[in-house]
Simulated assay, not measured.
Amino acid sequence: MEKSRNELCTDRFDFTFSLCSSDSTEIWLIYMTHRFTEEAESFLPKSTFVEANRAAYSQAGFIGKGMRNGFLTLVLMIPGLCAKRGVVDIAEAKNFPKDLKRILFVSWGSCFVFLSH
């Protein structure tokens, strides 16, 4: 079955939008990881996972920094569970700057949305 001209244009627009969204998301995620990882870790000095992650991933270069940033974001998403396991100090997680937390959540969330298909 042949597609109409309108359907072809719509498909092309969807592909272009998807490609631009995923490219800009990747670029932003690279910048965000480079710019905010150490700053975010500095707000959690009593949390055991920060030092453990630095030791484990410091030799892995930029990929290691991305792993540290992603794990830090995950810990901030579920601080209660992480505090029960002794990973994060719950007071530090609650006092984490809201603007920085928003940057981390939105960045990794958009990565999941645009790059998971």
Rank of each mutant, 00 (worst) to 15 (best):
E2N: 11
K3T: 12
K3F: 09
K3N: 12
S4W: 09
R5F: 14
N6M: 15
E7D: 15
L8R: 15
C9P: 08
C9I: 15
C9L: 15
T10R: 13
D11Q: 15
F13R: 12
D14I: 04
F15D: 11
T16R: 12
T16L: 15
T16P: 06
T16E: 14
F17M: 03
L19H: 10
C20V: 15
S22D: 05
S22E: 06
S22N: 05
D23H: 08
S24F: 08
S24D: 01
S24K: 05
T25D: 08
T25S: 09
E26I: 14
I27V: 11
W28D: 01
W28M: 02
Y31C: 01
M32Q: 06
H34G: 08
R35K: 05
F36A: 00
F36D: 01
F36R: 00
T37G: 04
E38V: 10
E38R: 11
E38A: 13
E41N: 07
E41K: 02
S42A: 13
F43V: 06
F43M: 06
L44C: 07
P45G: 04
K46Q: 02
K46W: 00
K46S: 06
K46H: 03
S47N: 03
T48W: 05
V50I: 10
V50D: 01
A52M: 10
N53G: 03
R54N: 02
R54I: 01
A55V: 00
Y57C: 04
S58Y: 09
S58Q: 14
S58W: 09
S58K: 13
A60H: 12
A60R: 11
G61V: 08
G61A: 12
F62V: 14
I63S: 11
I63G: 07
I63D: 12
G64N: 07
K65R: 15
G66P: 04
G66K: 05
M67F: 02
R68A: 02
R68W: 01
G70P: 09
F71E: 09
T73V: 13
V75D: 08
M77P: 14
M77D: 15
I78R: 15
P79D: 02
G80I: 09
G80R: 10
L81E: 13
L81W: 08
C82E: 11
K84Q: 10
R85T: 10
G86E: 06
V87P: 02
V88I: 09
V88N: 02
I90H: 07
A91L: 11
E92I: 05
A93V: 07
K94N: 14
K94V: 10
K94Y: 14
P97R: 04
P97S: 03
P97V: 03
P97T: 03
D99Q: 11
D99T: 11
D99K: 13
D99R: 12
L100V: 02
L100A: 01
R102H: 08
R102G: 03
R102P: 00
I103H: 01
I103W: 04
I103V: 09
L104Q: 04
F105Y: 09
F105Q: 04
S107P: 01
W108S: 01
G109A: 03
G109M: 02
G109V: 01
S110L: 03
S110E: 00
S110Y: 00
F112G: 07
V113M: 07
F114Y: 08
F114G: 00
F114M: 01
S116L: 12
H117F: 07
H117P: 10
